[in-house]
């Protein structure tokens, strides 16, 4: 089974966006285009009908190697052998859902603020939705939170998060630039005459963003980088030579620094950036003849 960590593009069903076309046909196209996690959301369907759709999607996603999540209904998720359940803020608390679905199934939750995101992380959510980034017809009446919240989540949240809400190939770059590494789309994909093409486009944008900023982030939200300090690889979130030096607590010692072969005068440490792959030497004088 695919791991959640590998998932980049999350697509949610929205049958009202593709009237006249079959749910499975649209979702298959989305998966073939690059969606790697699919959620069944159908606020109108009742129990038996919903279960039937769930089982059909389960079969499809299993065949195509995508994850399958059921919105709102832990019991349907269980009955359809889905990979997990997705909750809204007004749904079952995470703890209660966990008790129902067990430790191995995924639990995701929609969040609309960093506070909700922190709470979800603490409560043991496997992933969160972060949004709505833009106003969306899927959730009419909910105010958009903008890319600001995406940036906050990128800084702070360690579990995977999917930016969601009005995202389409035209604005995805903005969301990715804010720090999102995973996107979720609904109408842009399932409302398109060519869902596969839209997914391919979104995936390409995600992958390009990852190439240009492939760095993990540390707890402080800064970019973590690997630098070689005195011949040893160190992971640091220091942005400047001064910060890097501070992390070693040289104190009063007369230390001289070299960055990539060039001596950096102490007065310039605060203005000297530390970047991925930099080779730093901190030297001092020792006894010698």
């Amino acid at each position: 089974m695919r791991s959640l960590n590998d998932c980049k593009l999350y697509v949610i069903t929205g049958e009202n966006y593709h009237k006249g076309r079959d749910l499975l046909e649209v979702m298959e196209a989305a998966i073939r285009g690059g969606a790697d996690i699919v959620q069944l959301r159908d606020k109108d369907a009742a129990g038996p009908e919903l279960l039937e759709k769930a089982r059909a999607l389960r079969e499809l996603t299993r065949r195509l190697g995508a994850l399958f999540i059921v919105n709102d209904h832990p019991e349907i998720a269980l009955a359809a052998e889905a990979d997990g359940v997705h909750l809204g803020q007004e749904d079952l608390p995470i703890e209660a859902a966990r008790a129902l679905v067990g430790p191995d199934r995924l639990i995701g939750i929609s969040t609309h603020s960093i506070g909700q995101a922190r709470a979800a992380e603490r409560a043991g959510a496997d992933y969160i939705g972060v949004g709505p980034v833009y106003p969306t017809g899927t959730k009419p009446g909910r105010p958009a939170v903008g890319t600001g919240y995406v940036a906050e989540a990128a800084e702070e949240i360690r579990i995977p998060f999917f930016a969601i809400g009005g995202i389409h190939p035209g604005n995805a770059e903005e969301v990715l630039a804010a720090g999102a590494r995973r996107l979720c789309a609904v109408s842009a994909v399932v409302g398109s005459p060519d869902p596969a093409a839209v997914c391919r486009e979104l995936r390409a944008l995600i992958e390009r963003a990852q190439l240009s900023a492939p760095l993990p982030r540390t707890g402080g939200g800064r970019l973590a980088k690997t630098v070689v300090v005195n011949g040893r690889a160190e992971t640091t979130d220091a942005d400047t030579l001064q910060e890097l030096a501070a992390s070693f607590r040289f104190g009063e010692k007369l230390v001289v620094a070299e960055r990539n072969g060039e001596v950096v005068p102490r007065a310039d440490w605060t203005s000297t950036p530390v970047g991925e792959g930099d080779r730093i030497e901190f030297v001092h004088f020792v006894g010698g003849g």
Binding site: V229, N230, G231, R232, F248, R249, F250, G251, K253, L254, V255, V256, E281, F282, V283, H284, F285, V286, G287, G288, G289
Partner: peptide
């Protein structure tokens, strides 16, 4: 004197200067 890398493990080591 000699010039050597600062011991990052043990920052308390003695600097001759």
């Amino acid at each position: 004197f000699a010039v050597r890398r600062v011991n990052l493990e043990e920052v308390e080591d003695d600097s001759i200067l």
